[in-house]
Design a protein around this nucleic acid. Structure first.
Length: 572
RNA sequence: GGGCCUGUAGCUCAGUUGGUUAGAGCAGAGCGCUCAUAACGCUUUGGUCGCAGGUUCGAGUCCUGCCGGGCCUACCA
């Protein structure tokens, strides 16, 4: 038994996330966490909402709500949806928690003590109407290069030229449209990442088994141009973690907060603290996951995230950890994902294009989404969601291969022997071959799950299901029964036990269906089939079961067409 | 502009350090079965591996160039 700390990138608070966000971190992390728990490892699986930053303030203003209230509501909504998808977080925290405030301020204090904080006075654009400083991309104007009128302050989307906000002609606030902008001086804290560059470089260089996607992004930031740059870690906002040196006031920084990307990863730690507090456990319960001086040396820490999050997890968060000089746990493995696209384009909140997590649960059970998304996880490149592929995958894999297998075995048994595991007969060559084939595939499945090869794991699991159908077809109990009921009995007894095993090994992908199968088999023995022969004789003759309802109803062409239309978004 | 990823059968994708006739699932075709959600099993048709060069006894795999798709490029998160 080993100990695994698993974190999923924390979803931003400003709205309900779409399927791309789900498959980009939370769902694969859940798959891994569930698998490891089933293999009897000790798991701490952490997620949270990322609640700070300009977009959160604007979304709250847009909803006409105070930002703290807005965040609390959105957190509740996101949490409920995660329950709906059976995401098995040990704790789903909030980056606005008191624990995170304290810890973020603590890290800042330690970094300052280590001489890793610079105070920098810089010029920023202030909008009087909006009463706020504007981040570069919240300033719009005419591109000096191509004259595009809706260029953003960081980059012109039309000619792709990188810009400074002061380059724009006729600049205006993207929030209010106000042109009453002025340049003001403001002081900010910078984390001196430059001076940590060599340590970070050495650390990354040692991670030879990390996905290329992860290390190539990190190395690019480390080595491109002038190399890793110092990074501003404070902002002129009201909502956020107030700037402090540990518990002390930071002179000159009274009305500022930490930058969301400084406090967000610290929330992984803080959320574990929230977890222990929620259970009234003393601090060492969370510290044994995070402090190598408090028992975390043997913890394997695995992070899941979309590719856009990689620089923060490979560079700035480790810089915070290393720079603190304290024995905090660094990540051991980063699994990063490309994007899921929707019918050839991007998922888009503003254009109402694509499927959002709440909508997905309204039209189909979570397992349908879990299975399709995981079996098409964008591991090596962006992958595309299309309704026709979704329908085909779900119908074939879940309804036909697995669902129908459960159905044919249980119904056949009921009609010939009743709803009870039949007695009699013994294994022959066909049964021995099945066990041998199962063993080969199961070992492969376990190996792939351990390596977090998600699509390959899904394919192997499906191949395991297929073995059940193949076996039934070969032994044909419906024929055998006429001549020798005993022989049919052992075949069906084995098949019922096989279904139980499928329920167990499939649980990381489709936990709900897995539970339904086990319930209908009237068993709650979920132990992993480490010994197949033993595991296949768990349900003994005489054991009562109930034929389950249809596990997976097929998606009809009508439904699929309706959803294509409904979720297609605005057609240009 | 720069960097990275990516292009393999109609579709979704595998193809280990270059090694014999390029694989799987789906879709298509044929056969079988009738226990089952018109489900299942078996067989089978599909590929100048984006294009053009190069290295090599040998290239899907390595190199160069070009073309297409995507992401990132540090104040969105």
């Amino acid at each position: 038994m080993a100990r695994y700390l698993i974190t999923s990138a924390i979803p931003y608070i400003n709205g309900i996330k779409h399927l791309g966000n789900l498959i980009g971190s939370q769902l694969p992390a859940d798959l891994y966490a569930r698998y490891l728990r089933q293999r009897d490892h000790e798991v701490m699986f952490i997620c949270a909402t990322d609640e700070h930053g300009t977009p959160a303030e604007l979304a709250a203003a847009n909803a006409n709500k105070p930002v703290d209230k807005f965040c609390a509501e959105m957190h509740k909504i996101q949490k409920d949806i995660s329950v709906g998808f059976y995401l098995s977080f040990d704790y789903f925290g909030r980056s606005s928690s008191p624990q995170n405030h304290k810890l973020t301020q603590h890290f800042a204090g330690m970094l300052d003590k280590a001489g890793l904080i610079d105070e920098v006075t810089e010029k920023q654009i202030y909008s009087k109407i909006d009463q706020r400083y504007l981040p570069d991309r919240y300033i719009e104007g005419t591109c000096p290069n191509c004259k595009y009128e809706n260029a953003r302050g960081d980059q012109c989307e039309q000619c792709t030229k990188q810009l400074n906000p002061t380059d724009l002609l006729n600049p205006r606030s993207a929030i209010s449209g106000s042109t009453d902008l002025e340049i003001r001086e403001t002081k900010h804290l910078y984390l001196k990442q430059k001076s940590l560059k060599n340590k970070l470089d050495d650390w990354i260089s040692g991670k030879e088994n990390w996905p290329i996607l992860t290390t190539s992004i990190a190395k690019k930031w480390l080595h491109d141009g002038d190399g890793l740059q110092d990074r501003g870690i404070t902002r002129d906002l009201k909502w956020g973690v107030p700037v402090r040196k540990g518990k002390d006031i930071w002179p000159g920084m009274e009305n500022k907060v930490f930058y969301v990307w400084f406090d967000a990863p610290i929330e992984y730690i803080a959320a574990t603290n929230e977890w222990s507090d929620s259970k009234n456990l003393p601090d060492h319960h969370w510290q044994r996951w995070w402090r190598t001086d408090m028992g975390a040396e043997d913890v394997q820490y695995v992070q899941f995230m979309g590719k856009d999050n990689v620089p923060f997890h490979t560079l700035s968060f480790p810089a915070t950890i290393i720079g603190s000089g304290e024995p905090w746990k660094l990540v051991d493995y980063i699994k990063s994902f490309n994007y899921l696209t929707y019918d050839g384009g991007q998922f888009s909140t503003s254009q109402n294009r694509g499927v959002f997590m709440d909508q997905a649960l309204e039209i189909l059970p979570a397992d349908y989404w879990r299975w399709w998304l995981l079996s098409h996880a964008p591991e090596n490149s962006d992958s595309e969601f299309t309704w026709i592929n979704f329908q085909a995958g779900v119908n074939k894999d879940l309804a036909d291969v697995l669902g129908n297998l459960v159905s044919r075995v249980t119904k056949f048994c009921k009609s010939k022997f009743g709803e009870v595991v039949p007695e009699g007969g013994s294994y022959g060559a066909d049964e021995e071959k099945l066990i041998s084939d199962l063993q080969t595939r199961l070992s492969n499945y376990e190996m792939l799950m351990e390596k977090i090869e998600i699509r390959k794991s899904a394919a192997e699991l499906r191949a395991l299901w297929v073995l059940g159908n193949e076996y039934l077809q070969i032994v044909a109990p419906w024929v055998v029964f006429k001549e020798s009921p005993d022989k049919a009995a052992v075949q069906i007894r084995l098949s019922l036990n096989l279904i139980r095993i499928y329920a167990i090994i499939s649980a990381p992908f489709i936990p709900d269906a897995s539970n339904k199968i086990l319930e209908s088999l009237h068993t709650d023995d979920r132990s992993w089939p480490t010994n197949l022969r033993v595991s296949l004789s768990t349900l003994n003759a005489g054991h009562i079961f109930t034929v389950p309802e249809v596990l997976f109803a097929k998606i009809s062409d009508e439904s699929r067409k309706e959803w294509e239309k409904k979720f297609g978004g605005v057609i240009d």
